[in-house]
Design a binder for these strands. Structure first.
Lengths: 140, 140
DNA sequence: TTTAGCTGTAACATGCCTTGTTACAGACAG
DNA sequence: CTGTCTGTAACAAGGCATGTTACAGCTAAA
């Protein structure tokens, strides 16, 4: 799988916003977040847009606009971030339908569905154990 | 992550070889495996090549050539298959180095390394619980 | 020793995904 | 109103996954 860095970018952005707020800066622009992540502001807006749709951050428009946490850093887990930004499943099935005249071709997809689902659950359980507050603490 | 189907293809191929052997057919050609997976024989040769390098299958050249299990289906876990065919890590770090003048930019990579490693371990533990023999049994 | 059959791999095509970039309409605090 | 920043479209570049053709190399069997 061509691994992407969406989770990394989103966690970085959130952690930086959390730190800024602790320091008294309530609203951060996408430009300010982009400066820490070292990427383009549009990338950050896209990522924070995903987080907003998931209810993790808030946005303010107009002059003095920017982004702010919608919840305490302790109450945002990496699982929530993962769900907010990740679309693709961990493992893909066959690109073309397997040969249904073969017993394996007929039976393998439901079997793999179960296995992949268990693997996914286990990954999620692990991600749920870490919060943005944990990441922030360990960064400092 | 642009999910790929390598694990699916490799498990399918292995399971089909295991079934054929149980039915008395010792060696299968890449063409025969490709017929069940419904893809090109070269794709199968590439996948089985990975599995051969990992010691999971054997190949025979010349006339009457083909592929055969190097171990009993009970002794091949999906984790071994995963390790044999998967190159990319689950989650990628930043594509460009983050801003090291920011505390988060400086500290986040080691933190995420730990988190991602734990997630990876948990995924692997789960994949290790299923063998090719299990997949074969559930297919039938 | 020849021959036929199959592997191993290079080379290339295609399509999709990710990231980056520019541009601009829309929202809104002051 | 006005200036600032968001939301998103549009496009480009690069990379990876998959598919396909082609062919050299290996070897069991005749």
């Amino acid at each position: 799988m061509a691994a992407n860095s969406r989770l990394t970018i989103a966690v970085h952005a959130l952690t930086w916003i959390a730190l800024a707020q602790r320091r008294g800066q309530e609203w951060l622009t996408s430009e300010q977040v982009a400066a820490s992540v070292n990427t383009n502001a549009v990338i950050i807006r896209r990522s924070l847009g995903d987080l907003r749709r998931a209810g993790l951050v808030e946005v303010r428009h107009g002059a003095g606009a920017g982004w702010s946490m919608a919840r305490a850093p302790e109450d945002i887990t990496l699982l929530q971030v993962y769900d907010a930004v990740e679309r693709e499943p961990l493992f893909a099935m066959h690109r073309t339908e397997p040969n249904l005249e073969c017993p394996i071709g007929r039976g393998i997809r439901p079997v793999l569905d179960v296995v992949y689902d268990r693997a996914d659950q286990s990954l999620r359980r692990e991600l749920a154990l870490t919060s943005i507050a944990d990441v922030l603490r360990d960064c400092l």
